[in-house]
Design a binder for these strands. Structure first.
Lengths: 143, 143
DNA sequence: CAAAAAAATTTGATATATCATTAAGTGCAA
DNA sequence: TTGCACTTAATGATATATCAAATTTTTTTG
């Protein structure tokens, strides 16, 4: 395990993520240029579990609480979601998609699928699994 | 190639990168809490090729020109490097490490090595190579 | 029950990311 | 040698990342 090799791998991980995010964002922009890849993920998460605490949204999106608060602010400002008080626990928010949010999500789902197909072109299920397992080991090492 | 599997892989890539950056930054902070992982990479690049145009530094660090400009600003402000005019091409900067920059780099190199060892613990050279090759294919797909 | 601890979120400060635009300098062609 | 394209860098605007600290509400516990 020499340094140049580990350097190379870490560099490739960063490169892979950034390359994917770049094309993903470009494709999304052709449909809706007021939303980002991450905002869309958040929108999806909120739709799937409208009453989840933001702390769990943060975990799902690999972000910290502060980041989620600000993304929620933006989505509210841009009218994709509404923030309501939770009647059982007044510390929490209940987040709900607006019509605009629902429509945006519907339109963008196919783009997201296309993005995945672009990134993973020519990968077999087996290779995807192998890649994921290798990454999981790295994640565990860093935990 | 189903969606949940590609989603999982992309999620793992992001998770791997963030997990690594988090431990890397934590370890660096024990030595010097005024510098970031990326600033250190930039410092290293500048030391290796002091007369490279910033566009190439950007490519090496997978960042865009604007990001490099701002990182250079910060490194200058914090006295890790000096910006001089390039006498042959007045559009360019010549960037030079200060004493402080040299010392910081020297101290941090061992930390960087440790960070790599933590992240890649129990990976064989063969596995590292395999991981890199899989990532390279994803990168090419997104180019 | 009152005080302390914990949970959920927000806010502040600083660093990065990304895209578009602007500015300045260089080099080449007519 | 002027004019135009290209290169290099800086700026502006907005979104995100990260850590620390503050706020509000709920839960625990003495």
């Amino acid at each position: 395990m020499d340094f140049s090799q580990t350097y190379q791998v870490l560099h490739s991980i960063e490169n892979a993520l950034k390359s994917y995010k770049r094309v993903a964002q470009q494709n999304i922009r052709t449909i809706d240029d007021t939303i980002t890849v991450d905002q869309m993920s958040l929108l999806q998460q909120i739709k799937n579990n409208p009453n989840t605490p933001q702390s769990q949204l943060a975990a799902a999106l690999l972000k910290d609480y502060a980041a989620i608060t600000r993304m929620v602010d933006l989505l509210v400002k841009n009218k994709y979601i509404k923030r309501k008080g939770n009647e059982y626990d007044r510390r929490r928010n209940t987040l709900l998609l607006t019509d605009k949010g629902e429509k945006a999500l519907k339109k963008l789902k196919s783009v997201l699928k296309t993005n995945h197909e672009i990134a993973m072109k020519n990968f077999s299920n087996y290779e995807l699994d192998r890649l994921d397992k290798l990454l999981q080991r790295l994640i565990v090492n860093c935990s």
